[in-house]
Simulated scan of single mutants.
Amino acid sequence: MSRRARPLSLAAAGLAVAALALAGCASAGTPAATGSASDSGEGWVTPGKITIATGEPAYYPWVIDDDPESGEGFEAAVAYAVAEELGFAADDVVWVRTGFEEAIAPGPKDFDVNLQQFSITDERKKSVDFSSPYYETTQVVVTTGSSPAADATSIADLKDLLIGAQTGTTSYTTIESVIQPTQGAQAFNTNDDAKLALENGQVDAIVVDLPTAFYISGAELTDGVLVGQLPTPEGETGDQLGFVLAKDSPLTSQVTEAVDALRKDGTLDELAAEWLGGEGEAPVLK
């Protein structure tokens, strides 16, 4: 399952190219590429293995067909690339599943690293560690052609509507901080629940990250409409996604070094183009 040996597969059409605008610097210490990480049992859940967690379920285009072991999908591919950078063979990758909020709650973990579109925030850093970011994205409003949100061209047009998102996510907090709807953000356990509520007319629109927005609007909704991106506050970056590790994990610097190496050699850009590439545009709402 080497990232260099695995044949490339094109993601389904309808996804947007999302720019990977990350400029992190490599952490100090022994370079991860030496393979020393896999040779040492210190800090790992299972010595000689790397235990990687993702969601239950894991969604396209991040993981294809809810099968991370295949290495297909952006986050599945990034996980195997990081494992290889750390010196682990594909057979030494062990996958487990966790809930989204469970993964970022304080306390011990049954995984070495976890990736399921976790935005790096100061609040979450109080409970867990993050690697340097492997991807940067924005939040996007999605609706259907029959919804009153379909004609929205500004944030003001959305304020009196029912807007929902998965609870505990940046999508949810962005609704509250950027749109500030008069009826508050509508919370759902998963993106699937939010999408179902949209289809049933229980909400007027939902907010998800950019790649997910293009897939939902183009492939899952019968009459999907991509309303637009929510703006990033001036002077700030988009949502930077990182690997989650246990708080004060001895592995954090090694995983960060691996991510930084993959960014520097262009692997992260290549994987983003492969799995998140496609056609379409999402205007920025003002």
Rank of each mutant, 00 (worst) to 15 (best):
L276P: 13
A246C: 06
D66F: 12
L210E: 09
L8E: 05
K286L: 14
T174M: 12
T54H: 06
A32G: 06
G201M: 02
F74V: 09
V96P: 12
A79T: 00
A258D: 03
Q202V: 15
N189P: 10
A77L: 10
D67Q: 07
T182R: 15
T222W: 02
A165I: 03
Y80T: 02
N191S: 14
D204L: 14
A219R: 10
D209K: 08
V244C: 08
G235S: 01
Y215P: 14
A5R: 15
N114F: 14
V141R: 00
R6S: 03
G201R: 05
E281R: 01
G278S: 03
P211F: 01
E270Q: 10
Y60C: 03
G87P: 10
A150S: 13
V178W: 01
V225K: 09
S9K: 04
K49T: 11
D66L: 07
A105M: 06
S154Q: 01
F214Y: 15
W275Y: 11
V45N: 07
D269G: 12
Q229F: 04
V255M: 06
T222F: 15
V142N: 06
K125S: 09
A53V: 02
L8M: 05
G224D: 08
T212M: 14
G277H: 02
S253M: 09
G71V: 02
P211D: 06
G235D: 07
A11F: 08
T222P: 07
G73W: 07
A105T: 13
S154L: 02
A21C: 01
Q116T: 09
V141W: 01
G29T: 00
V78T: 06
L20S: 14
P211L: 00
L198N: 02
E56W: 11
L210N: 05
V227S: 00
V128S: 02
P250W: 08
R97G: 12
W275C: 02
A258I: 05
A258S: 05
A28Q: 13
T252K: 06
S38Q: 04
D248C: 11
A89Q: 14
L271H: 03
G14K: 09
D239R: 02
A282K: 00
Q186D: 11
S40P: 04
S132R: 05
V207H: 12
T137M: 01
N200Q: 08
R97F: 10
R97I: 13
S253C: 11
A16Q: 11
Q186M: 13
L115W: 14
R97A: 08
A18E: 13
S38E: 00
V259Q: 09
D91A: 04
D260S: 13
N191T: 14
A13K: 02
D65C: 04
S146A: 12
G99E: 07
D160P: 10
E270V: 14
V113M: 11
S146V: 08
T167M: 15
I52Q: 00
G242I: 00
T30D: 08
D204I: 14
I175H: 14
V178R: 04
T144C: 09
N189K: 15
L262M: 03
Q139F: 12
A18C: 12
Q254T: 10
T46P: 01
F74W: 06
I50D: 05
V284H: 09
A194P: 13
D209F: 11
L210F: 04
R97K: 09
T174K: 03
S177D: 10
L221Q: 02
D92Q: 15
T174A: 11
V203G: 09
P181G: 05
A58T: 15
P133V: 01
V244N: 07
L10W: 13
E279D: 10
I52E: 00
A156T: 12
